[in-house]
Design a protein around this nucleic acid. Structure first.
Length: 562
RNA sequence: AGGGGCGUGGUGCAAGGGCAGCACACCAGCCUUUGGAGCUGUGGAUCUUGGUUCGAAUCCAGGCGCCCCUGCCA
């Protein structure tokens, strides 16, 4: 119906449609192959969404298959975490499988290859294997064990499997072409020996484990995956991906690659994220500054915003950096604002309080002002906000001597306190250090609610909180984690590029309707930004995370003036 | 250097022989009880050289540039 509903199209969807049309496949099945060794981050979402959507749009199904082929790296805890994050995004799958489910069958297929003379056991040391692989410009050398008899290969492979040989002593290799210009085709390793630790699912049953190229493609085939979507760096593996099922005479899925998603001002590599956590630069994997889904969720990014962002980004085969593309975080932030603007309840909260005394307001009077909960959503209704003689306003909303184009409060100027009254500044009170501690104003009683009966206008409306009704809260203001657009460059460079001000903790005041907020709930603090209630909240002390600020036109003007 | 991939405003994507368009960013204005939201408008791009063609971002050739590949990681 609306233009938003027009189906996005791209070369991947086109390829799938074509395969269906010309009969290469008569159904669609995709797979999500995360390795359970880390938490999901925004970069993963791109792959998750295309796999999910391609299946969904074609009435097909998605299989979530954990790629657990290396017991030295994988942990069960990540299996649950990955599923939880994927569900949060709204991804649905037909079933969950594990590469390890297919270890037996895969082993049979390997023996078949040995029988065909297409695979052999190599006794070279890892160093020899590496040295004999050749270089980009020189061909590799055949292993001296390359032409063993089928019987010997079968026997050795069986004994490898049974744990008769130590780690690293032998591997099973595909027999392809040691002179192939594509290094992946130079007799790639299929199985290596790993005794410890036990596998998280198969325990100590296996002493050999399949390599990615051997396991992944064959698992795709076994599961009847039609479209195996992966990132650009696997382009070079495609000949091998196709070679195995070709030899075996089994079902051949189609692999299609796309550019990975990176964001500027952040790092995405597992290793670097881990360092941030382990060395305490952030509070954990769910630190609101992390590009992990857990971090973004805690920060208050709606799943929909992340999904929208990735959809807006599109798919391509452009490789700007690290097999992918570097998106501008402002696009993500705009998606977040887009969603939150429509859904968030408005509240008033003061981040950096400045005391304002309304000299002509009765000392003990308290009035209840009507405030709109969400101008974007009439159904959200209104609420009462208490008003009294002393209020807090934002320090930024007052200047003793206003710069050009400053419309807010300054001596002699009249502004509106949102939903309350017009006030006019008369004078300020300073402490010994010369800092302004109180601003004195008078109010116009006829402007209750915020409109002047005489029709006069004010150029500015500012937010406020009644001092005696205010609830003190902790406010965590976030900024980008890194000061450099590309902190990835260099090994240690990213630590040096950390933004020292990525977290600032403030003590602010919020209106009483927020005195015991529910963890996870989201609000817009008017004129400031979107905030969500952090799990660190206690009944005594609510903690708010700034999800994203509102666009700040004044800040822009001011910056330009300097 | 060998193989593979890719070059469209600042960023991310469209257009696939026929007026280079969208989103974000940027700039100007309108509107406003959020300097928010919304609305209107401006500026800015086809890596380069040559070829094919009435016509090229698109097809061809050369050049240049960027990304990936020499794990018993995925």
């Amino acid at each position: 119906m609306s233009s938003e509903e027009t189906k996005p199209t791209d070369y991947i969807r086109e390829a799938v449609a074509e395969d269906l049309k010309n009969g290469r496949f008569n159904y669609v099945r995709t797979r999500l192959p995360p390795e359970p060794n880390g938490y999901l981050h925004i970069g993963h979402v791109k792959a998750f969404m295309i796999d999910y959507l391609i299946a969904k749009e074609n009435n097909g199904e998605l299989i979530l298959r954990f790629d657990d082929t290396n017991p030295t790296k994988e942990e069960t805890e990540f299996v649950d975490a990955i599923m939880e994050d994927a569900r949060w995004l709204g991804i649905e799958w037909a079933k969950v499988t594990y590469a390890s489910d297919y270890f037996d069958e895969l082993y049979e297929w390997a023996k078949k290859l040995v029988l065909m003379g297409k695979a052999y056991v190599d006794d070279q040391t890892p160093e020899e294997v590496s040295a004999n692989r050749g270089t980009f410009t020189e061909p590799g050398k055949n292993s001296p064990y390359r032409d063993r008899s089928v019987e010997e290969n079968l026997d050795l492979l069986e004994r490898m499997k049974n744990g008769e040989f130590p780690d690293g002593s032998r591997v099973l290799r595909a027999k392809i072409d040691m002179a192939h210009p594509n290094i992946n085709m130079r007799d790639p390793v299929m199985y290596r020996i790993i005794h410890e630790p036990p596998h998280h699912r198969t325990g100590t049953k296996w002493k050999i484990y399949p390599m990615y190229d051997w396991a992944h493609g064959q698992n795709d085939s076994m599961e009847g995956i039609t479209h195996s979507l992966c990132s650009l760096e696997y382009r070079d593996h495609r000949p091998l991906y196709e070679w195995f099922p070709e030899q075996l005479g089994v079902f051949k899925p189609r692999q299609i690659e796309f550019a990975r998603l990176n964001l500027n001002y952040t790092v995405m590599s597992k290793r670097k994220l881990r360092r941030l956590v382990e060395e305490g630069y952030v509070s954990g994997w769910d630190d609101p500054r992390m590009p992990t889904l857990r971090g973004m969720r805690r920060r208050g990014y709606p799943a929909k915003a992340i999904v929208d962002f990735v959809a807006r980004m599109g798919y391509s085969t452009v490789a700007t950096s690290n097999s992918g593309v570097i998106a501008d975080v402002s696009m993500l932030e705009e998606s977040v604002r887009d969603v939150l603007n429509k859904t968030s309840l408005r509240r008033m909260g003061v981040m950096k309080p400045l005391k304002v005394v309304i000299d002509n307001y009765p000392d003990d009077l308290v009035e209840e002002m009507d405030a709109i909960n969400n101008p974007e959503d009439p159904n959200a209704g209104t609420r009462k906000v208490p008003f009294s003689k002393v209020v807090y306003i934002e320090q930024d909303d007052f200047r003793e001597s206003p710069p050009p184009k400053y419309y807010r409060l300054f001596p002699g100027n009249e502004v509106r306190l949102r939903y309350a009254y017009f006030i006019k500044c008369t004078h300020v009170v300073k402490n010994d250090a010369g800092e302004i501690v109180e601003v004195h104003v008078t109010y116009d009683p006829s402007t209750r609610g915020g409109d002047a009966p005489d029709g006069r206008k004010v150029k500015s409306t500012i937010h406020w909180v009644s001092a005696r009704h205010a609830k003190e809260v902790e406010i965590r203001m976030y900024d980008r984690l890194f000061i450099k657009e590309d902190p990835e460059e260099g090994e240690d460079g990213f630590i040096a590029a950390l933004n020292p001000n990525s977290l600032r903790i403030l003590t602010g005041y919020v209106e009483p309707s927020l005195s015991s907020p529910e963890t996870g709930s989201q609000y817009q603090f008017e004129r400031v930004g979107y905030f969500c209630v952090d799990p660190d909240t206690t009944p005594n002390k609510p903690v708010f995370n700034m999800t994203v600020n509102l666009k700040d036109t004044w800040a822009k003007i001011e910056k330009k003036g300097k």
